[in-house]
Design a binder for these strands. Sequence first.
DNA 1: GCGAATCTTTGCGGCGGATCAAAGCGCTGC
DNA 2: GCAGCGCTTTGATCCGCCGCAAAGATTCGC
Lengths: 232, 232
Amino acid sequence: MHGTAEQDILCRTDLFRGLSPDSLRELRRSASRRRLAIQDPVFHQGDPAETFYVVAEGRLRVTQTTADGQQVIIRYVGPAELAGLAVLAGDDLHPSTATAVADSEVIGISRAAIREIMARHPEVAVNAVSVIAARYREMQQRLREMSTQNVERRIAHTILRLAREAGRRTARGIEIAFPLSRQDLAEMTGTTLHTVSRTLSAWESRGLVDSGRRRVVVRRPHELAMLADATG
Amino acid sequence: MHGTAEQDILCRTDLFRGLSPDSLRELRRSASRRRLAIQDPVFHQGDPAETFYVVAEGRLRVTQTTADGQQVIIRYVGPAELAGLAVLAGDDLHPSTATAVADSEVIGISRAAIREIMARHPEVAVNAVSVIAARYREMQQRLREMSTQNVERRIAHTILRLAREAGRRTARGIEIAFPLSRQDLAEMTGTTLHTVSRTLSAWESRGLVDSGRRRVVVRRPHELAMLADATG
DNA sequence: GCGAATCTTTGCGGCGGATCAAAGCGCTGC
DNA sequence: GCAGCGCTTTGATCCGCCGCAAAGATTCGC
């Protein structure tokens, strides 16, 4: 039961998709499973990059902190996604911090194990290229957003993206299925919690969203998308 | 002469570093060489991603254009660097446009050729992971800058980065060795050419830089770096 | 060598969003 | 069940940067 679930999630990742059952079994032997409570750290910015993680369940927040103490959220990572990509690239240190934002379960894979697998199974290395390239594209898109769009559109895009990645259908609309504060949204969009709060309040009064303490529900995704794509 | 130079540049890239002479020779056979005059396009955003390029000489500018026509400069690419990474990842379309900003020479490698090489030489695929991961890190850094720094610091960082990548020592200081307009700097920093112009004028009067029509010389790199790292 | 096109500079006014301040609300823990 | 902490809201003010406009510099083509 235990082992089966683990194998399932590993072969559902873009990284290990298509790997032979034998290799998966071998991989499993060198992998370690870890349960995380909400708020638990997975790794810290500046730690030696020795292990990367596949999220089996739950969600992680990946952040970077600048020299002067400002924090930026790079990404949220959900089931079958990876955290700690620096390990794949053979970098020495983790450039970011990963923290659980929900009770989670992750599978840790050591640098040595993955590098050995990539060397022996070129298809895994090729998959790794695709995985990181996808992240790179994501980051390009966000940079473009930051460069060309005003705050309201950036917040709209961010919320729609999160709703897509981690949305749960409910009677009232699509609920983002993990605690998400105004401060978090500010750190994803390069603004302040005050501006996020004002923006959400305005949307709430127009019936676009329904939000509260660390909670966002998108009530009218289509109208929010219109707003996100409008020029300005 | 021709062939030797090509092999030289290929094995100086991070992607093909360490590849055996035989494999390099084979690679060379499937590669095509192309000369570019300033302003020549290499590929366009939306083109099928069939070929990626190693810059042998000169410099390319990689840009993305948004739906509403705004342009963002993703990066400049110099000798021994790659353009068209989407091809490595097996994506269908080029997400960006590459244009020569100096007379250049590039070596084109087809999607089929590189994928075959990666499948047969895992070390190339592993190198590809590192190459793209480095770009990903770069992009994270720029996103962090855009999120947390004011325009002046962003311009300072950008100019210092360009000076590092493409700087030429001269009597007056470090000259950025390709034409670079106010508009270009604006598209790299998410501001307007007006603000860039004002900023450079202010620096010029303090003796930090010396700039003119599509030309920037850093006269006091250290002081500019102080400014770039100052809080604010 | 002259005109045109392109790039740059600079002034001015306005506004989006940051900052500061303070009160309201909702969890959580004991 | 109440105290206290963390999150959110909202107001008021301020300023960095944009947008517009127009003139000045530099390069290019014929």
